[in-house]
Nucleic acid binder design. Structure first.
Lengths: 142, 142
DNA sequence: CTAAAACCTGACGTCGACGTGAGAGGCAAG
DNA sequence: CTTGCCTCTCACGTCGACGTCAGGTTTTAG
């Protein structure tokens, strides 16, 4: 298929597909006219790339990973890097979970305020869920 | 405390603290000489800001959230936005979890390759998918 | 054939959270 | 006073994954 169809089927832009090729993430055969032609499995490949990008991996890391997946070239160093990437993702998940809980407590508290008509619980003293909402602004203007 | 101490105690750069002020996330009293002075609770404030940044919230969203937390101004619209941010974080967590599992299977499979000396399992069963849409390619060991 | 898509290669623009360097001023100590 | 560190305000630089515009070519439809 040509680049437009691949873009449509994967949901990524044509520009992005060219960018992937530029980064060595995706290769294509060329027609006599110079147009790119992709095999069916390019769809899955692009989806994998997207997933890895979404995970926060840089294109350079993805390139190496793909070399492993596609060419079967895996060195212990690469594996170590990928494992470390994995751990970083784990860390991010933990961060996000913490932040989500925090945000949750803020939202919950604020919603309660709307109902009670009182100022934010942060001022009243600590969080409703106790998720670290002790943002006691013992400060300036009231 | 002055900006250098706040930076040291929070682990963020001086530049970042000035940036937060520029974005309306953090305010400071000024000495006659124009230097910023922060109260103790600024430490917690900065940590909250960092956590929200880490969660992927943009400074604009954080500003509004802080207005809620600090000033007690929460509109239903703001709450809806924050709730939607929360859901986005949830989505990100799901994305990351999926990507991590995927990465995991690649690493595990590649490690198995190193031991067996065989090419990547992606090739062995590649057929149409190439990059492996199926995460069943994980090796026997774990 | 023509016209219209779709595609091509550059190459500059974007956005966000700062980094970094310049040049000048504040602040405590001697 | 001077020294020396910290701080101030611009204001341009960065990095990554593209967006977008320009100008030309290939493919497809009629």
């Amino acid at each position: 298929m040509r680049i437009g169809e691949l873009a449509a089927r994967t949901g990524v832009s044509v520009r992005a597909l060219r960018y992937y090729e530029e980064q060595g993430l995706l290769d294509a055969e060329r027609s006599t006219g110079g147009q790119r032609h992709y095999p069916e499995n390019a769809v899955d490949r692009v989806r994998l790339i997207q997933q890895l990008y979404a995970a926060g991996l840089a294109s350079r890391a993805i390139v190496e990973l793909l070399h492993c997946v596609v060419d079967g070239n895996a060195t212990p160093e690469l594996l170590a890097r990928l494992a470390s990437e994995r751990d970083r993702i784990d860390g991010r998940i933990a961060e996000l979970t913490g932040a989500r809980d925090r945000l949750d407590s803020v939202v919950t508290g604020a919603a309660a305020n709307l109902r009670t008509g009182r100022p934010c619980p942060a001022r009243a003293g600590a969080g409703t869920t106790g998720a670290g909402a002790r943002r006691r602004e013992t400060g300036p203007t009231g």
